[in-house]
Computed example of a mutant assay.
Amino acid sequence: MATQAPERTRATFLPVSDPDAPPQHPRPGLGKPTSEESFTLVGTWVAALAMAWLVTQRLLPLGGWAWLVVAWLALGILFTVVIGFMTGRRVDVVDRVAGAVITSGALVVGAALVSTVAFVIFRGWEPLLHANFFIDDMSGVGPRDPFDRGGIAHAIVGSAIQLGIAIAVTLPLGIATAVFMTEVGGRLAGVVRTIVEAMTALPSIVAGLFIYTVLIVAVGFPRSGFAAAMALSVMMLPIIARAADVVLRVVPGGLREASLALGASRWSTVWHVVLPTARPGLATAVILGVARGVGETSPVLLTSGVASFMVTNPTDGVMNSLPLYIFKGARSPEPMDIERAFAAATVLLILVLALFVVARVVARTRTTARRPSLLRRFRRPTQQETR
């Protein structure tokens, strides 16, 4: 008679309780705060705001909203630490404090940016309601004339011409410098990189004095928009070269090796592989350079001068620009000129934003109408393609 095998019993193990071990069943929505955590967070900052108001507005002579915000941030972080030790562990306290500090810093920076833009628009909104402000110049217009006379068309045209010349000069030079530092290398590349990094901190007044001494005093070239564009080029060139150098070094080395292995030359590799791969970053480098040069006042003031009429020839005498117009209007004792200066600052902000949008659209990677890549050119055709 066959004997039956004994049935196997399933062993049960009791979990060992470890206070420091994570829970076996994590709560749903990992990473999202629970309702209790959200209530604690909101209550902490509300209590900190009430305490900051009591301290700054009632107990201490620290009137004003600036001291209130500073005290609110400090007390909010302090209350976060205290409540964190009451309800959690040390790692939870560190996480909450780090999150509070980062969030507070981002909110402060965002509030400063929004308040600056809002203040500029609020002070200069009235001249923007008149169409002549965008199509007329200030020739024959006095500082006390109403806003329906005069405009900033000459300053807009001058800034566009000067920036256009500066970009035409700095864009090929900056990218070529970055390609030399990244792709060529050698001892000379290290020297060039050191000079570029040192020039990024060059004061704008020094660039203006350099162009004024070399181009105007030594060569005898008149003060004009072209001289101002050369001064802006000195300011923009190290920014574009340094940012483009960082972008080109991020391109994977495997792309270069694959291109060279397929028989492409070094120049073809740089032109068809490296530069198209880094095109969005290069557009960002150009944006940084233009942002540095579009608001410069001192080099343009030394090399160009202020004009109240329209000038379209960059080599024919003085040429005004938006920074110079804003500088001249802000220093005027007349309220009408000050409001026009704020309106011109609003237009300058809008132009910079439009330039940023255009650069991002140009830098967008092409998907549909894309040229054949270098790797596709050098690969062998398949049998179906040969047929």
Rank of each mutant, 00 (worst) to 15 (best):
A5F: 11
R8K: 14
A11W: 08
P19A: 10
D20A: 15
P22H: 08
P23C: 12
S38V: 10
F39M: 14
T40L: 12
L41Y: 04
G43M: 01
G43F: 00
A48Y: 01
V55M: 07
T56Y: 00
Q57G: 07
L59E: 06
G63I: 05
L75V: 00
G76Q: 02
V82P: 00
V94N: 05
R96W: 01
A111K: 05
V114K: 05
T116Q: 11
T116H: 08
V120Y: 09
F122K: 12
S139M: 06
G140W: 06
P146Q: 07
A168I: 09
V169F: 14
T170W: 03
M181C: 10
V184G: 08
G185C: 09
G186S: 09
A189Q: 09
G190F: 08
E197C: 08
M199K: 05
T200G: 05
S204A: 12
I205K: 08
Y212R: 08
V217Q: 10
M230K: 08
A244D: 07
L248P: 04
R249M: 13
G254M: 05
R256Y: 02
A258D: 13
L260I: 02
A264R: 08
W267T: 14
W271V: 10
P280A: 00
L282K: 01
A283G: 15
G289W: 03
G289K: 08
V290A: 06
A291V: 13
G293I: 06
E296Q: 01
V300H: 02
G305E: 01
S308D: 11
N313V: 02
P314A: 07
P314C: 06
T315F: 15
V318Q: 11
M319W: 09
N320S: 11
S321M: 01
S321H: 04
P335W: 02
D337R: 02
E339K: 00
R340W: 03
T346S: 14
I350F: 15
F356L: 09
V357T: 11
R364V: 09
R364T: 13
A369S: 08
F378C: 12
T386S: 12
T386H: 07
